[in-house]
């Protein structure tokens, strides 16, 4: 009687091999989330300029997940005269232009929407971010809410009432200003209340 062959002797190991490979990949797969998925807005809702779009996502704070729904319409991307929420005219260095992103938003007044990021992209995908303070501009901290009626904040700190300011209206407009080099055309506007969710609006 011949002794069993190599394949036969190792059949359980061979069957287990693909399973262990999959398990090893699965065990290290958290890196895909940590280093890529939640690094930037990846799960995008697409919209066109001039149309209302409903965007639902979730933020989190001390109380846990805070789901929200907001309706957004991009009206215009135009040259800006003043920073967002300021009266003083813009003073720009040579070679720099300022664009105002005119947005209309609507949401229930009790929804915290202050912590949002606004990014504009050119046709090649280069990103320019809304900055509330930089050497060349100083403007409202949040690009998504009226600076004088921000509505509630996320409940992030114990002992700090998240809803103290004047209430936010049901529908409002904002005009956050983004600085770009001269000659750059804005192709898309990206709004996010925390990755991976985002709202990508074509500015064409």
């Amino acid at each position: 009687m011949r002794p069993p062959g190599w394949w036969r002797r190792n059949r359980w190991g061979l069957i287990a091999l693909p399973v262990t490979v999959v398990a090893a990949l699965a065990a290290s797969s958290y890196r895909v989330e940590t280093y890529w998925w939640v690094e930037k807005p990846r799960d995008l809702v697409h919209a066109e300029r001039g149309e209302w779009v409903t965007f639902s996502a979730s933020q989190y704070d001390r109380t846990g997940d805070v789901p929200f729904t907001v309706r957004v319409r991009l009206d215009d991307v135009r040259p800006a005269d003043t920073p967002f929420g300021e009266d003083a005219p813009l003073e720009l260095p040579a070679g720099v232009q300022a664009v105002a992103v005119d947005l209309a938003l609507a949401a229930a007044p009790d929804v915290p929407l202050t912590s949002c990021d606004l990014v504009v992209r050119d046709a090649s995908g280069t990103e320019y971010a809304y900055q509330s303070s930089s050497p060349s501009i100083s403007q409202a901290t949040s690009p998504c809410v009226p600076p004088d009626a921000r509505g509630p904040e996320l409940d992030l700190f114990e002992g700090l009432d998240p809803d103290t300011g004047p209430p936010r209206p049901g529908e409002w407009t904002v005009s956050p200003v983004v600085l770009l080099p001269d000659g750059v055309e804005v192709a898309e506007v990206l709004l996010s209340w925390g990755p991976p969710d985002g709202l990508l609006i074509s500015a064409e």
Partner: peptide, 11 residues
């Protein structure tokens, strides 16, 4: 650093 610099604008 003055914070993050926008691409294409020299800081």
């Amino acid at each position: 650093s003055g914070g993050a610099a926008q691409p294409g604008i020299p800081r």
